[in-house]
Simulated scan of single mutants.
Amino acid sequence: MEMQQNKGNRAIVIWLFTGVVMIIVQVLLGGITRLTGSGLSITEWKPILGALPPMNEAAWQDAFAKYQEIGQAKVINSHFTLADFKWIYFWEWLHRNWARLIGIVFAIPFIYFIVKKKIHRSMINPMIVLFLLGGLQGAIGWIMVKSGLNEENLYVSHIRLAIHFIAALGLLWYTLWFALKLSVPPQNITPAPAARKLSSWILGLLVIQLIYGAFMAGLHAALAANTWPDINGMWWPEGMFPTGKFWDAVTHNKITIHFIHRGIAYLLTLLIAIWFLKTARLPRLAGVRMLALLTVLLQVFLGVLVLLNTRTAIPLGFALAHQFTGMALLMVMVWGRFLTCA
């Protein structure tokens, strides 16, 4: 993604970093939606008309009746009143409307920059890709929701949830990289092949870890083991491969997913500590390397807090902090990777 960098890009950089912040908020709203069980409350996908909530009592009753037809409402939330339904509806509505707002915030300034000829030709294609990724994310979100709109499934597919989550983080990564391209002076970039290679491996492993974080959330796998540092009193928990099928265990078995998520966390901490040491002689990375080390340590600490405070439900505050720190770690490592580009 080659493009020109100049002082006139200031407004575009602010616009892109605004997008980064809005995507972070959107992912956190997705976390709230998931943890409050709100994701299936809106049973229809209306990209335009869906921006408005039900406007009268009859419309609310109609929306509630449609929700009561699915398995989640019949099995888990059969006790719900209309007031209960309005509470979960709010979070899903806010999540969807924030996505619409992101689209507006990206589209209107883009048109303005085009008209005012503030966008260089080299930026056009990356921005088109940005819009396509945003649209794709919305479509993936609806495909995810549809997996739970039936009488058999009580929640959305955790696989589709992970795809939706990683697609959002891919959009975050792309937008951040785009903004860095336009805002970081070339003299601030230090070619460091060894550090760059290690950071690439870390980012790859981090993506896998974030996928497993989505699996943990989608399957409520924290409820399967709320002890630390052991897992229900064991280091190699029982029932890891109940069917003997490896792929099925690592993608669907709660205790196996739990074990993998913890293990990758420890491995990431070790690799980031090594990266921290390897970049000690790169003065331009002084801030980002320290931030990476502190963030990964905080992320592990918050993960432990989530586990130790999980009883019958996953604690919302700790879980959101854990999710936010995971995103922060991704952004810090993307920043570190960027600063060591050739």
Rank of each mutant, 00 (worst) to 15 (best):
K118R: 15
I119V: 12
S122P: 07
M123L: 15
P126F: 06
P126C: 00
M127R: 13
I128K: 12
I128S: 11
L130D: 08
L130E: 02
L130W: 08
F131E: 09
L132W: 02
L132Y: 08
L132M: 11
L132C: 13
G134H: 07
Q137E: 13
Q137S: 12
A139H: 11
A139D: 12
A139P: 10
W142T: 10
V145I: 05
N150Y: 07
N150R: 03
E151Y: 11
E152Y: 07
S157C: 01
H158V: 08
H158P: 08
L161R: 09
L161C: 01
A162E: 08
A162I: 01
H164P: 09
H164S: 06
F165E: 11
A167I: 02
A168M: 12
L169T: 03
W173G: 03
W173I: 09
T175Q: 09
W177V: 14
L180K: 00
L180N: 07
P185L: 07
Q187F: 13
I189C: 04
I189F: 06
I189Y: 07
P191V: 05
A192G: 01
P193R: 00
P193L: 04
A194I: 10
L198D: 03
L198H: 02
S199E: 06
S199K: 06
S200I: 00
W201L: 13
W201A: 11
I202S: 00
I202V: 08
L203M: 02
